[in-house]
């Protein structure tokens, strides 16, 4: 059984390594990440949000809903930490 698992892992890993050949080059101007919305954000961030730091404008304005989720994750982590660890005084 273990040998089948090993073969499956090797095949999957080989496919992943093989498929990296199709990935765009690092920092390539023709990659999808730099041709779709990134140029629009960089060009319009001052005009639309008056925020010179494009990272902040994307994080908090264009992708504000995502950041709301991140904040909720942190809030949940804090509440769970209190619920799991907090104990009253020893009687």
């Amino acid at each position: 059984m273990k040998i089948f698992a090993l073969i499956a892992v090797i095949i999957t890993g080989g496919l992943l390594v093989f498929s990296t050949n199709e990935m765009p080059d690092w920092g390539s101007l023709a990659s999808p990440a730099t041709t779709h919305v990134s140029p629009r954000y960089l060009e319009k961030t001052i005009e639309e949000t008056a925020t010179p730091n494009a990272v902040t404008s994307v994080l908090a304005d264009y992708r504000g809903y995502d950041t709301l989720g991140e904040t909720t994750v942190i809030f949940t982590a804090g509440i769970v930490c209190i619920l799991l660890l907090r104990r009253g005084k020893k009687s």
Partner: peptide, 24 residues
Amino acid sequence: GTAKARALGTFGIEIGVGITVMAV
């Protein structure tokens, strides 16, 4: 104006994020 209002809205939510992260 609209652009400045978006900057101020961004600033408002940054304050909220900061308070939560500090308390947590």
